[in-house]
């Protein structure tokens, strides 16, 4: 027992170091805040925005973006591609953006959105647990949120999006 007490500090260190090593090697992002939306039914969208699209037998992507946001510019081609190649239904919601700026932005870059909403005061975003733009949600045919991406969609993310998008339709 007494002997054990003298080894205890070393054991504690081993456990701590194990966690630190695990954290460093796992590539964990300490800034990631997770999402509680996944697995829940999608929050309602105001007005006609989601009507006939969400819970309508086909998966839907919901993308929050803004014309002033650089990462949104970077991910924009992904949505163009999902729209043209996969025929995906995408609802775009411009967050804290002036409608004319949004429209000009889409005109310049192409408009992949089935429907376009505006969330100038961030109230829709709060209901969706948004932390900033861009963020993207995948909602399945039953209206359940299956994926929630914080930050821009990349080539790698398509690997998780496509099976759900295709499988559900």
């Amino acid at each position: 027992m007494n002997r054990f007490l003298f080894v205890l500090p070393l054991l504690t260190l081993a456990i701590l170091a194990g966690f630190f090593g695990w954290s460093l090697l796992s590539g964990r992002d300490p800034a990631s805040i997770g999402s509680v939306m996944v697995g829940r039914s999608a929050p309602t969208l105001p007005g006609q925005l989601g009507e006939g699209l969400i819970k309508a037998g086909k998966p839907v992507l919901v993308n929050f973006f803004a014309s002033w946001c650089a990462p949104c510019l970077a991910e924009h081609p992904m949505f163009e591609r999902l729209k043209s190649r996969e025929g995906a239904t995408i609802i775009g919601i411009a967050w804290k953006d002036k409608p004319e700026a949004t429209r000009a932005w889409l005109q310049r870059l192409g408009d992949p959105f089935t429907r376009l909403g505006f969330d100038q005061d961030g109230k829709i975003a709060l209901d969706w647990g948004l932390s900033g733009v861009p963020e993207t949600y995948l909602i399945d045919a039953q209206g359940i949120v299956r994926l929630h991406f914080r930050g821009p969609i990349t080539e790698r993310d398509l690997g998780t999006i496509l099976p759900l998008l295709r499988g559900g339709s």
Partner: peptide, 8 residues
Amino acid sequence: MVARYGDY
């Protein structure tokens, strides 16, 4: 708030 952003 917890319903939207979790315990975080």
